[in-house]
Amino acid sequence: MGARKHSAPRRGSLGYSPRKRAARLVPRVKTWPEVDLGKPVPLGFIGYKAGMTHVYIVDDRQGSPTFGQEIFVPATVVEVPPVHVIAVRGYAYDPNRGLYTAGEAWVNPPSELELWRKIPTLGEFKESKLKELEEKIEKLREIRVIVATQPKMVGGLSKKKPDLLEVKIGGTSDLKAIFEYATSKLGKTIPFNEVFSVGQLIDVIAVTRGKGFQGPVKRWGVKELPRWHKHRKGSRRTGARSHGRGTWWEIPAAGQTGFHRRTEYNKRVLAYGENGLEITPAGGFLHYGLVRAPYALIAGSLPGTPKRPIVMRYPVRPPTWYLKMGVKEPQIVYVSLQSKQGN
Rank of each mutant, 00 (worst) to 15 (best):
G2L: 14
R4Y: 08
R4N: 11
A8E: 10
P9Y: 03
R11V: 04
L14T: 09
G15P: 04
S17A: 14
S17E: 14
R24I: 06
K30I: 09
V35H: 01
D36H: 11
L37G: 12
K39M: 10
P42R: 01
G44C: 05
Y48I: 15
K49R: 09
K49M: 04
A50Y: 05
G51V: 12
G51Y: 03
M52L: 01
M52Q: 05
I57D: 04
V58I: 15
D60R: 04
R61S: 03
S64Q: 02
P65M: 10
G68R: 08
Q69S: 12
I71T: 09
P74H: 06
V78K: 06
E79G: 12
V80Y: 00
V83A: 08
A87D: 05
Y93S: 13
G98T: 05
L99M: 12
T101R: 01
V107I: 15
N108V: 11
R117I: 12
T121W: 11
L122D: 02
E124F: 09
K129G: 00
L130P: 01
E134P: 00
K136W: 02
E138Q: 11
K139W: 08
E142K: 11
I143E: 06
R144K: 10
A148W: 04
K152P: 01
G156P: 05
L157E: 11
K159T: 11
P162F: 09
D163W: 13
D163I: 00
E166P: 00
E166A: 08
V167R: 05
S173T: 15
D174E: 14
K185D: 00
G187N: 07
K188F: 14
P191R: 03
V195N: 08
S197Q: 14
S197L: 11
Q200L: 10
L201F: 12
I202S: 07
V204I: 13
I205S: 15
I205W: 03
I205A: 06
A206S: 14
G212Q: 07
G215W: 06
P216A: 14
K218H: 10
V222L: 12
K223C: 07
P226W: 13
P226G: 09
R227T: 15
W228Y: 14
K233D: 09
S235A: 15
R236C: 00
R237G: 06
S242P: 01
S242I: 15
H243F: 09
G246C: 03
W248F: 14
P252N: 13
A253N: 13
T257W: 10
T257Y: 12
T257K: 15
G258L: 04
R261C: 13
E264F: 14
E264I: 14
N266H: 12
K267R: 14
K267N: 13
R268T: 01
R268D: 02
A271C: 10
E274G: 02
N275G: 11
T280G: 05
H287W: 07
G289S: 04
R292Y: 06
A293Y: 14
A296H: 01
A296V: 11
G300Q: 03
S301I: 09
G304C: 02
G304M: 03
T305W: 04
K307I: 06
Y314H: 00
R317P: 02
P318A: 15
K328Y: 00
Q331T: 12
V333F: 07
V333T: 12
L337E: 04
S339P: 07
G342N: 06
